[in-house]
Simulated assay, not measured.
Amino acid sequence: MVDRTVRILAAGTALPGAPIDTETLAARFGMDRLWQQWVDTFIGTRTRHLALDLETGEPRESLADLATSAAAAALADARVSAEEIDLVVLGTATPDTLMPATVNVVADRLRIDGIPTFQLQSGCSGAVQTFDVATSMLATGRYRTALVIGGDVIAKHYDVTTDLAALPPEELVNYVLFGDGAGAAVLTAEGHDGSPEIRTVLTRVAGLDRRPGQVLRWYGLADRDSARAPADEDYKAIEELVPQLADEVAQELLDDLGWEREGVGYLLPPQLSVTMTDKITKRLDFPLAEEITCVGETGNNGNALLFFQLERLLARMTAPSRAIAVAIESSKWIKAGLALEQHGSV
């Protein structure tokens, strides 16, 4: 096996429609001021973007639409053509259809053909998992350049006629926590010394004997009239376990590379909500790191989040410097992370 350095050239993102603030959500669903205060205090997310018309519930953009836009932006920023891509990997919890795979719809729209494509079904760790697959394949020497994509369109599970006041907390939280979006990045093993190096990628399942923290159901013809909610989550379990798993990821990355916390200049923490991100960041305790966060503006858009963070990181990462990114998937509990290093002198 040929061991080659893999670098990230560029990232691109896409959001559907205009930002929707909590006041707009409250007005649409008839929620009072106390509910808005609850969202501000316990969630903290200020705006989110939804791929549906909030008044009618009609879909406006699909995951393929958003992923294609994000991928095109990443390719343009990297100055890489579709013909130069040797591998495409998409991570999502919410594909547009079971078949065809959304990754292949995106590839077709980008005029990419004749290469390996992979679609990973995963929650928030799926974005990191795309890096795991792509960097492993690039390191073999058989492939030169990869396009990795992550995104989710969660709003298609919303019922805009729902009486939010009647929902239990495990269902209510989904209406304020999540948003839609997609992101992409171009990775290469072909030179580009000025671009950040992907030093290591970590993904570990951590769900043994643990109940799922989140369930997202896909109904078929046989059970579409089920009384079960399309989505629910155990927010208390998530609040307790995610900071712990995030700390484990960060420590394993540091140990693997021989880095000290004080030597990390940028931290990309898990992006569940503003409140949870603050809690996790304090637990991680990187004293000199600049926090790269986006969830306050984008909402929790799942597998897109890492790419929004990377887009911001790449715009400000100096040389030399190091960055740690952590993502935790709370459905059946996957811990994931990656480390980047920008070499060179100041």
Rank of each mutant, 00 (worst) to 15 (best):
residue 92 T to D: 11
residue 42 F to W: 14
residue 158 Y to P: 07
residue 300 N to A: 13
residue 344 G to F: 07
residue 96 D to T: 14
residue 218 W to M: 06
residue 60 R to Y: 04
residue 299 G to T: 12
residue 132 D to W: 05
residue 278 D to G: 13
residue 289 A to S: 11
residue 177 L to A: 10
residue 310 L to W: 02
residue 225 D to V: 08
residue 211 R to V: 13
residue 49 H to I: 11
residue 8 I to L: 14
residue 12 G to Y: 07
residue 106 V to Y: 06
residue 158 Y to H: 14
residue 338 L to P: 00
residue 181 G to V: 06
residue 105 V to Q: 08
residue 115 I to S: 11
residue 4 R to I: 12
residue 174 N to F: 14
residue 72 A to Y: 03
residue 70 A to D: 05
residue 248 E to Q: 14
residue 93 A to P: 05
residue 310 L to F: 05
residue 99 M to W: 12
residue 325 A to Y: 00
residue 302 G to W: 04
residue 290 E to W: 00
residue 144 R to P: 01
residue 107 A to G: 15
residue 105 V to E: 11
residue 327 A to F: 01
residue 240 E to K: 13
residue 335 K to Q: 10
residue 10 A to M: 13
residue 264 V to R: 00
residue 187 L to F: 05
residue 106 V to G: 03
residue 269 P to L: 07
residue 171 E to Q: 15
residue 233 E to K: 05
residue 11 A to S: 15
residue 209 D to H: 11
residue 34 L to T: 04
residue 289 A to L: 09
residue 342 Q to M: 12
residue 62 S to A: 14
residue 115 I to K: 10
residue 340 L to K: 02
residue 119 Q to R: 09
residue 221 L to G: 11
residue 157 H to K: 12
residue 197 E to Q: 12
residue 13 T to F: 11
residue 338 L to E: 00
residue 85 I to M: 06
residue 219 Y to F: 15
residue 140 T to F: 04
residue 198 I to P: 00
residue 171 E to Y: 05
residue 237 A to E: 13
residue 275 T to R: 15
residue 132 D to F: 00
residue 88 V to E: 02
residue 129 Q to C: 04
residue 109 R to C: 03
residue 222 A to Y: 14
residue 96 D to Q: 10
residue 327 A to H: 01
residue 332 K to S: 13
residue 104 N to G: 11
residue 273 S to R: 12
residue 237 A to C: 07
residue 257 L to H: 03
residue 321 S to D: 15
residue 152 D to I: 06
residue 18 A to V: 13
residue 322 R to W: 03
residue 303 N to M: 06
residue 2 V to P: 04
residue 178 F to E: 05
residue 319 A to W: 07
residue 6 V to A: 04
residue 134 A to D: 02
residue 70 A to E: 07
residue 55 E to L: 10
residue 210 R to W: 14
residue 126 G to P: 02
residue 68 T to R: 02
residue 26 A to Y: 05
residue 49 H to E: 14
residue 315 A to V: 06
residue 21 D to R: 09
residue 121 Q to A: 10
residue 274 V to I: 13
residue 149 I to R: 02
residue 98 L to G: 07
residue 71 A to M: 09
residue 22 T to D: 11
residue 195 S to A: 15
residue 206 A to K: 14
residue 151 G to R: 08
residue 87 L to P: 01
residue 315 A to C: 07
residue 17 G to S: 09
residue 336 A to E: 01
residue 263 G to A: 01
residue 213 G to N: 10
residue 269 P to V: 03
residue 309 Q to H: 03
residue 343 H to A: 10
residue 232 D to E: 13
residue 175 Y to T: 09
residue 138 L to T: 07
residue 119 Q to P: 09
residue 338 L to D: 00
residue 246 A to Y: 01
residue 55 E to Q: 09
residue 88 V to R: 02
residue 342 Q to L: 06
residue 1 M to S: 13
residue 123 G to Q: 09
residue 209 D to L: 10
residue 293 T to N: 08
residue 208 L to H: 08
residue 325 A to H: 00
residue 286 F to R: 00
residue 264 V to A: 07
